[in-house]
Design a protein around this nucleic acid. Structure first.
Lengths: 247, 247
DNA sequence: TCTATTTCTCAACATATGTTAGGCTTCGTG
DNA sequence: CACGAAGCCTAACATATGTTGAGAAATAGA
């Protein structure tokens, strides 16, 4: 079971941070059965109401989760980057409560739900790491509630940009002073609870004031501190330092 | 280890729904060490930045979690009712990313973090049940992002009222056509991302139109369907039917 | 390279919700 | 039962954000 599976390595690296894993745990994690699949941009791979019974790991590309109200308004509730193990809920809950869609072309590793559950049962350390992953997800959702509920448009967008900056940096996907953000302004609007027109206004204002520098989908952050301040951003909620020491 | 611990029974009943527990699992769950404490209304028992290393079960009363922006605006991110095992994050994460405060007088059972972790390690079924609990929490947070991000004030408040109605009903704490909601309009505002004044406007409008009937903090729902429709409420996200069959 | 489509930009105007402020009611406490 | 504090209600007015619509720029496909 020690074939080379470079696709899973990034995830393993992250899970190691979550909980202490022994050699058997790591082997079991790398031994997860999976099927690689490449999916084009904009494709739904989970739909609300479905029962997929499989999880998936993003090997490359970006994806997002969203829900649509009865009025047809869309709200993006999270954006995911390579290394994120998403849709663990599908392995554990009976029904999907939201949609998941690719943002860019993605390489995804699909893992059967039963394999996840068996892994959690046989290797409680790994179960704990996955649980912690879910706890951190929940923490990010909480911050999004705050973002959308209590910050004005300007801070809200700045906050989103700060969050991406830090997450991409940690994943080794950001350049020194910026990153490629593969979202349209409409998608940014759906993530912040604003309209595309207003996102445009705010983005241009931030640009004009030198807080960000845009070039197509590239977001440059010439100086972190002023943007951070406008956003009221504090990274505690990302739990980047999370290492659970043994019980 | 079979002393009577009526305080924990409600939680056990809920966890049984989450994952299949054998006799040993249930015994271990009921054997959790805890310390009962009664806390007055409005008291913080977790503060952002702290590291409590203990979880707690609400035996009676209501509590809520919130975060405060740099501008001083408060956003309530969840409200908890008796039977909720809250702050599992404090047992697993290094630092609290939000505040938790009592809404009414509460009887709380505090459980040491180490006991939670040991339980999860020794009884993977229980670990799985707790993980599922966290997954459902996360699902509720997602719905709150949608609520606050994409619904207008009227639907937003109606949605909150519907959510409470169903959750209290399931917990056996609602009367047939309504329930006691121990929140001020200011707190409702903080939960919906509105101002107290506007909450008042909307509440009176819903009342005037016969969608709800208020008497002090009592919320009567004479007819479920119209309110449900105004809210665009669908209970999928609460995962009330959640029963995870064996792997 | 050309064309069709999607995205971005901009402006004029509309409105849901916020702000401020005051009086009224209810509730808790002595 | 009286008092003070907390919560509720109301109104007039302010504004951040939404709406509509249309042209310009970028991107993707042929």
């Amino acid at each position: 079971m020690t074939e080379l599976r470079p696709e899973l390595l990034q995830m393993l690296r992250k899970f190691r941070m979550r909980a202490p894993l022994d050699e058997g745990d790591e082997e079991a994690l790398l031994g997860l059965p999976y099927r690689m699949q490449t999916i084009e941009p904009g494709v739904y791979f989970v739909r609300e109401g479905e029962r997929p019974d499989r999880s998936c790991l993003i090997v490359s590309g970006f994806a997002y989760r969203h829900k649509v109200t009865i009025e047809g308004a869309r709200q993006i509730v999270s954006v995911h980057i390579p290394g994120d193990f998403i849709d663990l809920e599908s392995a554990m809950l009976n029904v999907a409560d939201h949609n998941i869609q690719t943002l860019t072309r993605c390489e995804l590793a699909f893992v059967p739900g039963s394999a996840i559950r068996e892994l959690a049962m046989a290797h409680p350390n790994v179960g704990m790491a996955m649980w912690i992953d879910t706890l951190i997800d929940a923490s990010v959702f909480r911050e999004w509630v705050v973002n959308v509920g209590r910050r004005d448009a300007r801070s809200r967008i700045a906050h989103l940009l700060c969050e991406f900056a830090r997450r991409l940096e940690v994943a080794g996907l950001a350049e020194q002073y910026g990153y490629q953000l593969p979202m349209t302004q409409e998608q940014l609007a759906d993530a912040t609870g604003l309209t595309p027109v207003h996102v445009n206004r705010v983005l241009r204002a931030l640009d004009r004031e030198g807080l960000i520098e845009r070039d197509r989908r590239y977001v440059g952050i010439p100086d972190w501190e002023p943007l951070r301040r406008v956003a009221g951003f504090s990274e505690t909620y990302l739990h980047l330092d999370q290492v659970r020491s043994a019980a």
